[in-house]
Write a protein that binds this DNA or RNA. Structure first.
Lengths: 110, 110
DNA sequence: CAAATCAATAAGTGATGACTTATGCTTTGA
DNA sequence: TCAAAGCATAAGTCATCACTTATTGATTTG
């Protein structure tokens, strides 16, 4: 269970480690796009794009929608949740003044 | 300037992509440790540890303190700030959690 | 039906990265 | 002062990864 979470984390970190893949994710965050649309404006080949999409999909960062011979992809920002959780683990080590601010903000939200 | 930030982002993502390096960071988040202390409980060689530390240091994720022949390292959680900023770009898809963190980040930037 | 389009997969290649052992440099302590 | 400890760097090796071209499968269109 903890292991499974760690594995997802690992896939996310690995997926986002590549600059080209981050660029793909960022473009797909702006809106759904077909693979060929995504390819325009990129210097890499179509198979390279497909390969990047497969990695992002495996990490849960993008979702696919098929329509005829087209494949539309969009970013799934909720896929970033495990990454956020990972970062939040270290909030406890952040300076105390930030912790205090956090509490204040949390209070304000309610 | 935006470019510089992007480069730091890239280094952080790359640094955290490796599971061993994440483990090192996590251990150093628990408290300062010398390189040899860090090495105990790890399967890799001492040079490997030093190399990982150099990468983490380059990404701004750990800081070094030298004392005699010892080198003590500790995690710098503020080094994660650019990573949070990156995630924060997708906040429109994350109604509430990120909004709080955004304020925290703003404070950390000072 | 045939040709073209869209996308994934196959297979191979070069670059990058994580490791190793060997070595050097600095500091400590007997 | 000399040996050992602590750590970094050098250099080389092997695995992984991002890319390429070639091909295939599936769908649309002429």
């Amino acid at each position: 269970m903890t292991y499974a979470l760690t594995m997802i984390e690992a896939e996310i970190f690995r997926a986002l480690a590549d600059p080209t893949r981050r660029a793909v994710f960022e473009r797909l965050a702006a809106g759904e796009m077909s693979v060929s649309e995504l390819r325009t404006g990129m210097t890499v080949s179509q198979p390279a794009v497909s390969q990047h999409l497969a990695v992002l999909r495996g990490a849960g960062l993008v979702v696919e929608r098929r329509a005829g011979r087209n494949a539309f992809y969009r970013a799934d920002p909720q896929g970033l949740a495990p990454l956020l959780s990972w970062i939040e683990r270290y909030r406890t080590f952040w300076p105390e003044r930030i912790e205090r601010l956090k509490a204040v903000l949390k209070d304000m939200d309610q």
